[in-house]
Each structure stands twice: as C-alpha cells, then as structure tokens.
Amino acid sequence: MPAILIDKVTKQYAGSTTPAVRDLSLTIARGEVYGLLGHNGAGKSTTVMMICGLLRADSGSIKVFGDDPAQHGPAVRRRVGVATQDIALFPSLTGLENLQYLCRMYGLTPDHNKLMPLLERFGLAADAGKRADSYSGGMKRRLNLIASVLHDPELLILDEPTAGVDVQSRAMIIAYLREMNAKGMTIIYSSHILEEVEKLCQRVGFLSEGVLIEQGATADLLQKYRTDSLENVYLTVSGRSIDV
C-alpha cells in the first residue's frame, strides 16, 4: 500500500472561476522523499490540505496509508506531520513551552528526556527558555520542524522548510530529514530551492495552475530534458520560473 494515493482529484474554491487543483493523480510510496514543486498558487498548499483532511476534494479520491482523510481526518492526521511555511508557533511562549504545549495537544506527556535531545540536535537547547518571538528566522524554522515531528509521524510534509534560513540551519534540517527518511519516514518536500530538492528527493512532480504537468525520478527528468538542473526542467515544462 502506498503512503499516498491521489486519483483524479479536483478542488475549486467557492467564488473562484478556475479549480485550484484539477484532475490530479499522484502516488507516493512509503519511505519515499517526493518533491512537490510549483510556483505560488500552483495548488501545492491545496493538495497538502486535502491530504491532511482539512479540505474536501470536489471529486476524485485520496488515500493516505489506506484511509480517506475526508472521512477519517483525525486518524490520518495522527500519522502525518506538517511543517507549514508560516512559523506556526506561539510567539510569547518559550521554545520549550511551545513543544511542551504541543506535546499535550498531541495527547503525549511532555518528556524532558525526549524534548531536550531534539532541541540539542537542532542547536536550540541553550535558547530553550527564551521566548519564540526572540528567535532568529533560522531558529524559528528549526523549532517549527521539531513541532511537526513530536508525534513521530510516518509521513512528513514540509512547505519551504528552509526559506530564509542561514546555511547552518539549512544543513541541520536537511541532515535530519535524511536521517528520518533512512528510518522509513515518507517525506513530501516543497521548496523553491531546487538544488536542495535535487539532492534530497527521489522523485519530483511539477504543479502548474492546479495540474500535475510532469513527474518522475529526479535523474530521469534531468536526462529526459537533457539538462543538469531541475530549474531548467521546470522552465521547459511550465514556461515560467518557479519563483514567480
């Protein structure tokens, strides 16, 4: 059973003239790192929200580990972690308090022996007692990622996890993701930094105007389009830059 099976899914928001996602079919295997790429408004966030059961598809079907997220949202969300592009933390709580609170909301007991090693791993242990709003952009991103894996998800979805972070933070995040993937975690990775995607993802899919316009193994795509970068592949298939 694949981690994610999306079959001919369409989603159009009320008041919009065009679908945000149109006839999308996608399969992601367990233990795979899949790069979901596209410009702003291409339909990535809508797809992620449907995978988590926070949005209902108008048509088509979605299965996450065999469950329909629209029907069994809580069961799906227990197995999925999402690091959103926004820093979804409570700014007036300290880094540690944020994690403790989120642990309780996951129904877990905040275990100091589990949280502190995670904070240390991401270089935040010394600042664990400081308010999250005093953290730098990179520190917030790292804390945001920790907050997404507190419940040991089988599938981790990351939306621009390295946006606006320093080299050191980026290296920590990438190294952690590799380690988690090696332990069997399925990862959907969305980023504008295509070099990272090339290095991390086994397969990538390109979304444009809600349509999956191309997908395949990273190496195969580079070979197919006779180029050395995914940026060029994206330019060729979509006719536009990914930053637009």
């Binding site: 969300r77 227990r78 820093i87 419940h151």
Partner: peptide, 21 residues
C-alpha cells in the same frame, strides 16, 4: 492573530485538538 500566523492551522493539524483548543 493565531489564525493569521498559522498556529491555529497547527491546531487543526493535530488530531482531536480543535475542540479542546
């Protein structure tokens, strides 16, 4: 504010936490 800065979304992503939140 929590909705705008995304922390409410995180609550929605945590199974069974919305009502308690």
């Amino acid at each position: 504010k929590e909705r705008e800065d995304g922390s409410l979304l995180r609550m929605r992503l945590i199974a069974g936490s919305r009502f308690h939140f």
